[in-house]
């Protein structure tokens, strides 16, 4: 049974991360990978075209060449190896996984903040520091959203957890307590 993309991405990204960490190139590596990811995201068919046999090998080589020329060192080797093993369709996944490993390493947490009214910077900073304390992260990168339907309060959504302090949820819980 062939491995699914998530498993593949986890394995490649772990190896890549350990290698870059040893060579102390995590930050520069991430920047390069982000560029590669952008290429793949801008051309959604690229990953598949480089993996399956819809193109002649020579044409595929030509497509990979600019990617290989633009990169160097470990990243260059990564692109070459992923191409050789026919895993180019998992490239975006590998980079995403790498980024999550990188964030874990730097104790960075991404979170979506939803409020009923737009927040100013001082309020955002308050939430940032409070949330960082709560989850034990060094850095919190917030993505602020406005949704009037929550009426009031704050909802913070981050990898696999929801901190829900919205008036909407409180009202519905109150209703449950009263009506049953």
């Amino acid at each position: 049974m062939s491995l699914d993309k998530v498993t593949v991405a986890k394995r490649y990204s772990k190896a890549l991360f350990e290698l870059l960490e040893d060579q102390d190139q995590l930050d520069s590596g991430l920047e390069e990978l982000k560029q590669i990811r952008k290429v793949f995201q801008d051309n959604p068919q690229l990953g598949n075209a480089l993996t399956d046999n819809s193109l002649a090998p020579a044409k595929r080589e030509a497509l990979v060449k600019p990617l290989l020329d633009q990169s160097e060192g470990v990243i260059h080797n990564l692109v070459q190896m992923v191409y050789d093993y026919g895993r180019m369709d998992a490239m975006v996944g590998i980079i995403d996984q790498f980024q999550s490993l990188y964030d874990e390493h730097n104790q960075t947490v991404y979170a979506d903040v939803t409020t009923a009214v737009p927040l100013d910077d001082s309020q955002l900073n308050l939430i940032k520091s409070g949330y960082a304390k709560r989850v034990g992260a060094k850095q919190v990168i917030l993505n602020s959203k406005v949704d009037a339907s929550i009426i009031g309060g704050v909802v913070i959504q981050s990898a696999g957890t929801i901190f829900d302090g919205s008036i909407k949820t409180k009202i519905s819980r109150l209703r449950q307590a009263l009506v049953g």
Binding site: Q157, G160, T161, I162, F163, D164, G165, T169, K170, R173
Partner: peptide, 8 residues
Amino acid sequence: DEISVEET
């Protein structure tokens, strides 16, 4: 009145 924390 407490914030609900849920794993999703």
